[in-house]
Amino acid sequence: MLPQEKDQELRQKIANGFVVESEDDMTPSYKKALEVILTVQGDTELVSAPAYYFASKDAPTINSRLAVYAIIQDELGHANIAYRLLEDLGVSKQWLMYGRQPHEFKHPYGFDQPLENWAEMVVANGFFDRAGITLLSDVHKNCSYGPWQRALTKVDREEVLHLRHGESWMKRLAKAGGTAKAALQRAVDWMFPMTLEWFGLPDARKKHQDQLEYKLKGLTNDQLRQVWMSATVPLCEGIGIKVPAHFDQAKNEYLIDYEFPVQYDINEKRWLFDQPITWDEVFVRWKARGPMNVTYISMIQGDKQGLFGGLNW
């Protein structure tokens, strides 16, 4: 059988409910797609740790700081699960951690940003972890790769705690009013559009649907964006925080209130809603990575000469 025929056959089997259990069941193209999506998941979990760590220093109480530490420890565990699965596919975990340059990690642009106060920390839990749970619960429901699908039971349960932490603190800051509510609004202003972008190209622009055909995920980018907005928009509206999106009764879906995507001012952490850009321009910005990329990855990799450093992997 030609490689393309074999791959076609696998796609057909997966469409009929086949569960891939080992490398023997895969085609090279399936394996490649699985490696990419697992790397994105692992890297996203991993880099959230240094991002949250810096912001945990702004926690208002010992208990809330402990809650962030517990979240960080969960996230590192989730990264380990994804990397461990990659090891089964022949990718070295040591290389994943220490062998790559900061710009080669595949986490979303949102996690290359500095989280500079407690409001940004809890909005990260409320928005970024909500994005994570949106993506991963879809994988948990639909994924054709058995070992990953099963590993996500624990991950999903723990992500619920992160979300809960973020959302309850968002409510608390909003209720406090004054400068606390203003800081929350300021955080939402840059982090809401940042997460909208996170879900990637709109369906109409997407050429390759391999991840869907291999059932590495079940929902499209636009569907996932809708799921995310269906939780975050009512949450913010309920606490008097403005977001640039609303529910449209007639269309029965959430609509973004600006021409998506738009230019981002990195220094001001502000979206320039009157300056729409193309997705190609978004990819250029993503590829250049964000301001904290090197800091976060160096923190994970440690001193190159040190005990856990890059030269010893």
Partner: peptide, 11 residues
């Protein structure tokens, strides 16, 4: 004593 869910549970 370092339970991360303390605040949530009290709420």
């Amino acid at each position: 004593i370092a339970c991360p869910a303390m605040d949530m549970l009290i709420d």
